[in-house]
């Protein structure tokens, strides 16, 4: 495992810690999209089915379990915690799941490495992950005033993908057999979705202000 990959994973993990910290300390999930959290949970469930049939390393297994548990944990807080659930922006978070889930499922059935249940589900998770942030970005645009932790959460999620791209470039040159075109294409799309956000995030940060969206 190279440093880019490790840094990417840590950035991903850190983003999840931030969101749990925000919810736990402020007892609030204001500004967070439940739709995005549900989509990520679906991503993890469909991708990490391989926990049952393939083993890569202890690191991978532990990380997969952490991602699964934390995504269910976040959802539990947003749905059932007495105080937290009252802070959810239900009226603003109107993005429909099927707008993303259906096209990803269709695409996974058409463009995949192998037409088997596990492979199609895995491919579906790759496509869905690429666009799962959209409800969150839409909510961000609507609520405009973003608290620091939510801004940082999205920043680290974006950084995770950017670091994975560096990891892929590194592996492309060092491992001749490593060619994951489908994953790379989805990863590029995913990182691209953050471009706009990054621009405003860095601008706000430079000006020493809270993140403000136009």
């Amino acid at each position: 495992m190279n440093l880019f990959r490790l840094a990417g994973d840590m950035s991903h993990l850190f983003s999840i810690v931030l969101i749990l910290l925000k919810i736990y300390t402020s007892k609030s999930c204001a500004g967070l999209s439940m739709k995005t959290q549900e989509l990520y949970t679906l991503v993890f469930v469909t991708r990490y089915l391989d926990l049952f049939y393939s083993y890569v390393s202890l690191y991978n297994t532990v990380m997969k379990l952490i991602f699964l548990a934390s995504s269910f944990g976040i959802l539990w807080y947003m749905r059932y915690h007495k105080q937290v659930k009252q802070t959810y922006d239900r009226e603003q978070d109107t993005f429909r799941h099927y707008i993303l889930v259906v096209p990803c499922a269709v695409l996974a059935l058409i463009v995949n490495n192998e037409l088997s249940v596990t492979e199609v589900l895995w491919t579906f998770s790759i496509y869905l992950e690429a666009v799962a942030i959209l409800p969150q970005l839409v909510l961000l645009q609507r609520t405009k005033n973003v608290d620091n932790l939510t801004g940082q959460y999205i920043f680290f999620l974006g950084a995770y993908r950017a670091l994975y791209i560096l990891n892929w470039i590194y592996r492309y040159w060092t491992e001749p057999k490593y060619r994951q075109y489908l994953v790379w294409a989805a990863g590029l799309v995913q990182t691209g979705l953050y471009a706009d956000f990054f621009y405003y995030y860095l601008k706000s940060w430079q000006a020493g202000e809270k993140l403000r969206l136009p």
Binding site: R5, N60, M63, Y164
Partner: peptide
């Protein structure tokens, strides 16, 4: 279809 590579990323 491309070659199926071992999935060792998260």
């Amino acid at each position: 279809a491309t070659e199926n590579v071992k999935k060792d990323e998260l």
